[in-house]
Every structure is written in structure tokens, then in C-alpha cells.
């Protein structure tokens, strides 16, 4: 199935969770914040949050800025 990850199509395994998505992207959960279909996920929810076709996921973090 495909999801929209940070504005780009991304293929991922059916029924995979946000936690598994982060692991596949080599991202430590503490270093990012995740928005799943416009809802901010608390880190505790990463294991339970299953991805479905056409889900929108934004993975965001702090960068340098003024």
C-alpha cells in the first residue's frame, strides 16, 4: 500500500505501525514528532497506530531557525 509521507508517496507494508515506519527510516522516535492524518501522535501511541492506504503522515523535527 501507499501512504503520503512528508508530502511524497511512499510504499509500506500493509498493517505496519508508525513505530515500524520510523524504524524503517532509521529515525529514533524521541527525535521526531509525528502527525498521522493531521492528528499529533503521542509517542506512546506509535505502536498502536496502524497505517492504512493513502494515510497522510508528517514526520517533523526541530532544525536551526531564528
Amino acid at each position: 500500500m501507499n501512504i503520503l509521507l512528508n508530502g511524497q508517496e511512499k510504499e509500506c507494508t500493509d498493517g505496519s505501525t508508525v513505530l515500524e515506519l520510523l524504524a524503517s527510516l532509521k529515525l529514533t522516535p524521541e527525535s521526531v514528532v509525528v502527525e498521522h492524518n493531521h492528528e499529533i501522535l503521542q509517542p506512546e501511541a506509535y505502536t498502536a497506530a496502524e497505517l492504512a492506504e493513502n494515510d497522510q503522515v508528517e514526520i517533523i523535527r526541530f532544525v536551526g531557525g531564528g
Binding site: 509521507l5 512528508n6 508530502g7 527510516l25 529515525l27 521526531v32 508528517e58 514526520i59 517533523i60 523535527r61 526541530f62 532544525v63 536551526g64 531557525g65 531564528g66
Partner: peptide, 9 residues
């Protein structure tokens, strides 16, 4: 100050 951006995958 810091800014928020999409992670560079």
C-alpha cells in the same frame, strides 16, 4: 530559537 521542518528522510 529553533524552527520545525519535515525530517530530511
Amino acid at each position: 530559537t529553533v524552527a520545525l521542518r519535515r525530517v530530511d528522510l
